[in-house]
Computed example of a mutant assay.
Amino acid sequence: MLWIETVRMLSADLEEPFALEFVYRNLYELTKLDWLNLQRQEITDSERSVLTELAKRLKNNEPPQYIVGWTEFCDLRFKVDGRVLIPRPETEELVRLILSENDENECLSVLDIGTGSGAIAVALASKRKNWLIEASDLSSDALSVATENADRNAVSVHFTKSDVLSAFMERKKFDIIVSNPPYIAFSDTDEVDDSVIKYEPNSALFAENMGLAIYKKIAKEAPSVLTENGRIYLEIGYKQGQAVSQLFQKQFADKTVSVHQDIFGKDRMISVK
């Protein structure tokens, strides 16, 4: 049997038809041309066995990014595994919003709360060499992955273990606080893909109080660590625009709180400035 016949057969039941190609090519460091040339060859028993096992994992909803061990975010490559969430395209929009609204020539201090894989902090550090960037997470496992991602991308980020802002209270102040915290309400589990529920860390997905618990902590604690003209940027769930903006407007009456939409027109980000 040819490679192309085996790949077609094993991909037929997959949700994403090109997932098997993506995984195999990246595990074995094949170019697109290498892959195309392979399709015309006879497949060996060992090769078929490898493909079958990969297809089984994909059919079981294991994310391709976890299988290959990395994902792309803001044109950078990040290590990802079951200890951290896979960074999403909508979070790239949050990074772009921060970059567009803050002067690249200023030396700003930035804190990324709940950094996970380090995606936001590392992406900002790669684009703004003169910004002083710190990142925190409650998970030691996540901080280990984030530290490796900063090293892999040759950027300087200082990582701290912290429950939201507890490690920074009264210690130092930041010009920008950014966070993509857990924000899915437990009652909205049915809206989350099976692969996410099964493989990604629930502690980074779900939050108490209809998904608002971490936002409330940030709103309460941020005044102690934000500079006078400091800004806050948050990713939110598409149903949380009004609730989260009201939380921060109440806490920061002298600042403008804005809801920003993603490319699909859904509420996705909050800015406080």
Rank of each mutant, 00 (worst) to 15 (best):
W3H: 15
I4H: 12
I4Y: 08
I4G: 04
R8P: 00
R8Y: 15
M9N: 15
L10H: 12
S11F: 12
A12N: 15
A12W: 13
D13P: 02
L14N: 07
E15K: 12
P17R: 13
F18Y: 14
N26A: 01
N26M: 03
L27I: 05
Y28G: 01
T31L: 10
L38F: 06
E42A: 05
I43N: 08
T44V: 04
S46I: 08
S46F: 08
E47C: 01
E47H: 09
L51W: 14
T52L: 03
T52V: 00
T52W: 08
L54Y: 09
A55T: 02
K56D: 13
K56C: 00
K56Y: 12
K59F: 11
K59R: 14
Q65W: 06
I67K: 15
G69Y: 15
T71D: 14
F73Q: 14
L76V: 11
F78L: 11
P87G: 10
P87K: 14
P87I: 05
P89Q: 03
T91I: 05
T91S: 09
R96K: 09
N102C: 00
D103E: 13
C107I: 03
V110A: 06
I113P: 01
G118A: 07
G118C: 08
G118V: 07
A119Y: 12
A123M: 13
L124M: 13
S126K: 15
K127S: 11
I133Y: 12
E134L: 01
S136W: 08
D137K: 05
L138D: 11
A142I: 13
D151H: 12
S156L: 11
V157E: 04
F159R: 14
T160C: 03
K161C: 09
V164C: 10
L165N: 04
S166F: 07
S166P: 03
F168G: 06
M169Y: 12
V178M: 05
V178G: 00
N180C: 04
Y183V: 03
I184K: 07
F186T: 06
S187A: 05
D188M: 03
D190F: 06
E191H: 09
E191R: 12
S195A: 06
S195H: 11
S195C: 02
S195D: 14
Y199L: 04
Y199Q: 07
E200G: 02
P201N: 09
P201F: 10
N202M: 04
S203K: 14
A204E: 11
F206E: 01
F206Q: 02
A207G: 05
A207T: 00
A207D: 08
E208I: 01
G211M: 08
L212W: 14
L212D: 07
L212V: 05
A213Q: 13
I218M: 08
A219C: 05
A219H: 07
P223M: 02
S224I: 01
T227S: 07
I232Q: 09
L234V: 01
L234K: 02
L234H: 04
I236W: 00
G237S: 01
Q240R: 03
G241M: 03
G241Y: 07
G241E: 02
S245P: 06
Q246V: 00
F248I: 04
Q249Y: 00
K250E: 10
D254C: 01
K255M: 07
V259L: 08
H260P: 03
Q261Y: 05
D262Q: 10
I263N: 14
F264P: 04
F264D: 14
G265Y: 11
G265P: 10
K266F: 11
V272W: 01
V272L: 09
